[in-house]
């Protein structure tokens, strides 16, 4: 922490210590969520029914499979950023904060990997 300029006196403070990049990523992923969230909502309403054969046929097609993969990435990334802020605000003890942020990262990557694997398996016809 510097003590010269006014920016130097505040840099590194706050519960997160830094933030512009995080803030921007939250907005970029929010725009992705808006488009993809509306896409899945409208898609579900446009499907004739939600039976196994109908949804699998739908999500296996190239464009829905791609959109679903992007939805998984965008929402989980956004959720990871949002929950990070939540933990930084409410978990005050440094060791606990490190622990929950580690768990958050593991959960985010695990969830995204699982979702993407499922979509790829469906799209490539592995599930019969």
């Amino acid at each position: 922490m510097g003590n010269g300029t006014s920016i130097g006196r505040v840099r590194g403070l706050g519960s997160a210590k830094s933030g512009s990049h995080h803030w921007l990523l939250q907005r970029f992923t929010a725009i992705g969520n808006l488009l993809l969230g509306l896409w899945i909502a409208v898609s579900i309403l446009l499907l004739p029914n939600l039976s196994y054969s109908t949804v699998v046929e739908w999500v296996s097609a190239p464009v829905p499979a791609t959109a679903m993969a992007l939805l998984i990435i965008s929402t989980i990334w956004h959720a990871r950023l949002g929950l990070q802020v939540l933990f930084e605000d409410y978990v005050h003890e440094n060791g606990s904060k490190f622990a929950v942020l580690t768990l958050l990262n593991l959960a985010a990557f695990a969830g995204a990997a699982f979702g993407l694997f499922c979509v790829i398996r469906l799209a490539l016809g592995g599930a019969a």
Partner: peptide, 28 residues
Amino acid sequence: SGNVVGIAILLWWLGAMASGKAAYDTFA
């Protein structure tokens, strides 16, 4: 924070689809 539950259910739905008809019927 609530939307995290939504993501979990989305993943469950996709997992059920990818696991086959029996798993999907349980989910449904």
